[in-house]
């Protein structure tokens, strides 16, 4: 498949990119391009102009600053995968990165691009939701910070304005006794998730859960938070019973569709399973001893 013709713009600063966004007629932003390029090739997207962010060096970072983990719009999946900072402190990010697509795609694809694409089968939006993350956008009127909770509208549709672009994603740096994890079920490497669950829990000094965040992948029209499950966990001590209940509530709150990869009822069940598994890992990462009972 071959794309329709388009103009290619390569701004070198965010400011330049934002003015192009304003000046051009319905341009499309290209970051990693690993989802966009196939869409262009199949002519599912036919923009007259493409604004390519890849020369904007100021967007290429992954760092902790001011109490936040900050992910620049050009940080690639591989940057998360290979980051010692992430491996040490951000379990859900470390889990999710190597589960995204395949190595070549992780070398190019960006976390922000995945979030902007707003495909409910994408992984990063769930992680962002579980962590109470934020999307930082820049437009002609300056910077706007959008809570992840308010970002996703529909498949491929977000609350980002037409003349805005994502410059950064951010989540709070981990607290003491915090643990997070991401579990995903897919049929093979490179396949999208059939279901996925990102969780983050924070324990108080007594070991009671004081904060819980759960984001679900591929089981609704957008990535969604499992709010009932989150609420059920807060105030509880981590236990298999509490996690089981949370898994069940998360499943109840999901609305997957049946497709060739699986029935809706199965996907709901997997939300339960993956959420429980992620909670067990998160509890371990929060400092608890989790004993696995296996064959």
């Amino acid at each position: 498949m071959k794309s329709a013709p388009f103009e290619h713009h390569e701004p070198e600063t965010v400011a330049e990119a934002v003015s192009l966004l304003e000046a051009l007629d319905e341009p499309t932003i290209l970051a990693g391009g690993q989802s966009l390029v196939p869409m262009l090739r199949f002519r599912l997207a036919n923009p007259d102009a493409v604004i390519d962010l890849n020369r904007i060096d100021e967007l290429d970072y992954l760092e902790e600053a001011d109490g936040m983990l900050r992910i620049g719009a050009l940080a690639r999946h591989v940057d998360i995968e290979e980051s010692a900072l992430i491996a040490d402190r951000y379990g859900s990010f470390a889990d999710a990165a190597p589960l995204v697509a395949d190595p070549q795609i992780r070398n190019r694809g960006t976390i922000a691009g995945s979030v902007a694409q707003a495909d409910p089968k994408g992984d990063w939006a769930s992680v962002l939701l579980a962590h109470d993350g934020e999307v930082v956008a820049r437009g002609p009127d300056g910077e706007r910070v959008i809570p992840a909770d308010e970002f996703f509208l529909l498949p491929y549709d977000t609350t980002l304005d037409e003349n805005e672009m994502i410059t950064e994603l951010r989540v709070p740096t981990p607290l003491d006794r915090e643990g997070s994890a991401y579990h995903k079920l897919k049929r093979k490497t490179g396949d999208y998730a059939m279901a996925g669950s990102a969780v983050r829990i924070v324990l108080d000094e007594e070991g009671t859960i004081e904060t819980a965040g759960i984001g679900l992948t591929a089981v609704d029209i957008t990535n969604v938070r499992a709010t009932d499950a989150e609420e059920s966990l807060v105030g509880e001590r981590p236990s298999k019973e509490a996690f089981k209940q949370a898994g069940e509530l998360a499943a109840e709150q999901s609305h997957p569709e049946s497709d060739e990869h699986g029935d809706a009822s199965y996907k709901e069940r997997m939300v339960n399973v993956l959420t429980q598994r992620a909670l067990a890992d998160a509890a371990e990462r929060a400092g608890l001893v989790v004993k696995r009972v296996t064959a």
Binding site: R89, L203, E205, Q276, G287, K291
Partner: peptide
Amino acid sequence: ETLDSVGLSRDPSDSFEIEFGDTGAEPADD
């Protein structure tokens, strides 16, 4: 679905236990 149809499916909560033990009240800092 086949496992489940004959009662062989299993809940993850049957596969782990969380132990607070002696340090349970004060989980170790990460």
